[in-house]
Amino acid sequence: MNDLSLTAALWTVGSRDLLAAMRHRADLLTTLIFFALVASLFPLGVGSETALLRLMGPGVVWVAALLASMLALTRLFASDYGDGTLEQLALSPHPLTLLVLAKIGAHWLASGLPLVIIAPLLGLQFDLNADAQLVLLASLLLGTPTLSLIGAVGAALTLGVRGGGALLSLLVLPLYVPVLIFGAGAVEASAAGLGAGAHLSLLGALLLVALVFAPWATAVSVRIAVE
């Protein structure tokens, strides 16, 4: 086992997931449409007053991103668990923590990054100005990887468990709260002229904490699941 073979293994695990995701493009599209749909429901629910929408916009887009990325989580391990790929990964001589990190990275590229890219379109619906749009983009770029990392723990824990989907949301959504607060807060702060720097650095700090703990917890959970 040398470094070269570890790099190759991580690259392969990531690209295998991306390849599989690309051959299931319809699934990715569903997540994006869900994201747009949830955000579009809010104006219908609370009325179309521009001032109100501008105020609500960042929060709504963030909540929608939260729900969409949670919805995508079930795809992270479920098929690997079903077809036996996951137990083969658990038997690889490479550290499982890094292998799941590669999977989480691929998952974010396939389902988190597209959310970030179309978020400005939803921002337009809520009449966010250019500055707010930019901060929204930055906050999602820093925040959605954290969502994928935290969510991976829940996704691995609920593998093969009764009522997986609903249980997953119960486990994961409370843990998403800080990301939501700082993410939506960043946009609101910049709109209020306070500057989003503090919020964005806190989002970055959350990402670092999640990068340290989440892959480890996910690897432990995967081992529990394939027992």
Binding site: V153, L157, L175, A217, S221, I224
Partner: peptide, 10 residues
């Protein structure tokens, strides 16, 4: 074991 992981993450 699963409960332990989620409690520690929590």
């Amino acid at each position: 074991k699963a409960g332990a992981v989620i409690a520690l993450v929590g």
